[in-house]
Amino acid sequence: MTPALELEALAVDFASDRGPITAVEDVSLRVLPGRTLCVVGESGSGKSVSILAAMGLLDPRRATVRAQGLRLGNVDLLTLTDDRRRALNGDRIAMVFQDPMTALNPYLRIGTQLTEVLDVHRKMAKNEATSQAIAMLRAVGISAPESRMRSYPHELSGGMRQRVVLAMALLCQPDVLLADEPTTALDVTIQAQVLQLIRDSQARTGMAVVLVTHDMGVVAHMADDVAVLYGGLVVERAPVADLFAAPRHPYTRALLASIPSAAQRGHRLQAISGVPPSPQARPPGCVFAPRCAFAAPICQTVRPVEETLADGRTVRCSRHADVLHG
């Protein structure tokens, strides 16, 4: 099957006064139609920048995007003109951000912002666009959608705003939905509502979902496949059950072991020492080596490549065989 979205060896540099900063060094991701890929990583891992690059939202004056491939279905995004590219955004590929206020115009009514999408992408008549927008608001669980169309963003709660943004992203039935920490700012009960909503919409339309998150619990509930990012690199890719049952990269392993829970009561948490590397100062060998319990001399000097294992998973670690039995 053709992946709904594929990033191959993506690299992103940002210009700075002290020379280019490599935010993303080597990131390959793919997601099939109807499937959910969770992209996990901490701040500075390059997860958000990768997603913005896939959306074509990075400022070309500041960011240099290189890739072997960047495809949305059969469309090659690398060779597309800006106009064509822009026409795809919000239509075939849509995005939901962490803070819904960054996606909503505070001066415009919800209804205006929703119908605008259909006007731009579908040239739809006002009446029809309005009724579709109302239907979509209802689908994302907003009560009394007719009157909500006249509301301004500030009149809604955080959870409601994220529903509106989701409705806006789903209006044109995109093939791919990119969601960057869509529930991080929400309370757990509202998070559950929004995640369920993404699932329901996916079941209805068969869209592919790329969900960026740092919460392994959200991953466990939502993902079919997982890509773990660290220091601008994908360090491990695997189906979700395999990743949790047998993490192959020391970072994934340490991350899963460090989660606090009732079962860990009375025990010391297995914290990962040190801090994630900043993009300006990544270590020369393996990016995780300074914090890694498995680090050997080779890890300090040689940057491991992404290896594909027999079962199709990938891992970027010189010592992954030892990690498995460690």
Partner: peptide
Amino acid sequence: QALLRSVPLHDPLAARARGLQVLDGEI
């Protein structure tokens, strides 16, 4: 009960089996 059931589990199999409790409405 609802609050605890809304917290994601860290085990994909248990997560699929239980799902996320969706508590209707907001505070």
